[in-house]
């Protein structure tokens, strides 16, 4: 880390200094539509950085990536960057990325560090990598300052157990699940099988565990009936059989992870169909 910033005030000063073009002396154009928080435990750093790189240009926002380091000495070590992109002739749009290592006890009280850095009056999205520690300090703290929680239950072991804990937060915060978004091409295909699908007894899903549980939960909740699930593991959703008959394959290519997160960052309403699918998964 080139210049480790140790306080919120230092982060603010660094950002203010970087909002100017060194050559022309002119300020950069700054457009903000949200604050995007990302909670990134050690194991997810590489994957998270890839997605952040893909997102920066699409969502002019302030991104605050939080890297918990509970085993280190107390304190924060931060870096603040202003990234600019061409936007029309001779104009640039800039977005801000703040990377904060939360060391020692700071990892258990992230809200007090994050709150002064939120862009006022704009929505706050929290992307939580891995299974959130439901009911525990940092997760509970951050839930209280965000408008929307974005998870990817594909990253979760032990499904469907954690879905029960997730359902408990639905009344506190809006939730998006990238695993659910990955089923979006298939759900219209299954809906197109109506009315034949109304009496379905059993489905076989070849895909991730999360996709299998969510599709089964969706069909159970929408059709209000018990449906048996058979799951064939695969790293992507490649087929769904309804009572032994393959559903039509959806057109187009599946979107990449940055696209999926990008789409979720455009959503502002509560997805009750997803919530019911989770409760029935």
């Amino acid at each position: 880390m080139a210049t480790a910033l140790a306080s919120v005030a230092e982060i603010d000063r660094e950002l203010a200094a970087k909002r100017w073009d060194a050559e022309s002396g002119e300020p950069y154009q700054r457009t903000s539509v949200m604050t995007h928080l990302a909670w990134v435990p050690e194991a997810w750093v590489e994957a998270a950085e890839d997605v952040l790189a893909g997102l920066a240009e699409r969502h002019p926002s302030r991104t605050i990536a939080l890297f918990p380091r509970p085993d280190e000495d107390d304190g924060i070590e931060a870096r603040a960057d202003v990234d600019c992109f061409e936007s029309g002739v001779g104009r640039q749009i800039c977005t801000e990325t703040i990377r904060i290592e939360l060391c020692g006890n700071r990892a258990s009280v992230p809200a007090s560090i994050v709150q002064p850095l939120l862009l006022p009056d704009l929505p706050v999205f929290l992307r939580w990598r891995g299974v959130p520690p439901f009911g525990e300090g940092p997760f509970e703290e951050l839930l209280d300052v965000v408008d929307r929680l974005i998870v990817d239950s594909t990253e979760w072991p032990g499904l469907p157990g954690p879905y029960g804990d997730l359902a408990d937060v639905f009344d506190r915060v809006m939730v998006s699940d990238i695993a659910w978004a990955r089923t979006s091409r298939w759900r219209p295909q299954l809906a197109s099988l109506w009315p034949g699908i109304a009496e379905v007894k059993r489905i076989k899903v070849t895909g991730t565990e999360a996709q299998a549980y969510l599709l089964a939960g969706w069909l159970r909740s929408r059709l209000d009936r018990e449906i048996e699930l058979e799951h064939e593991p695969s790293d992507r959703l490649v087929s769904v059989e309804v009572d032994g008959e393959p559903a039509p394959f959806p057109p187009g290519d599946p979107p990449d992870p940055a696209d999926l997160l990008s789409d979720e960052l455009d959503r502002f309403a509560r997805d009750r169909i997803y919530e019911q699918a989770v409760r029935s998964a």
């Binding site: 154009q29 457009t31 699409r58 992109f85 936007s87 029309g88 104009r91 749009i93």
Partner: peptide, 10 residues
Amino acid sequence: DFLYGGTFRT
């Protein structure tokens, strides 16, 4: 300024 292409980069 609100710059259309800079806010929605789709």
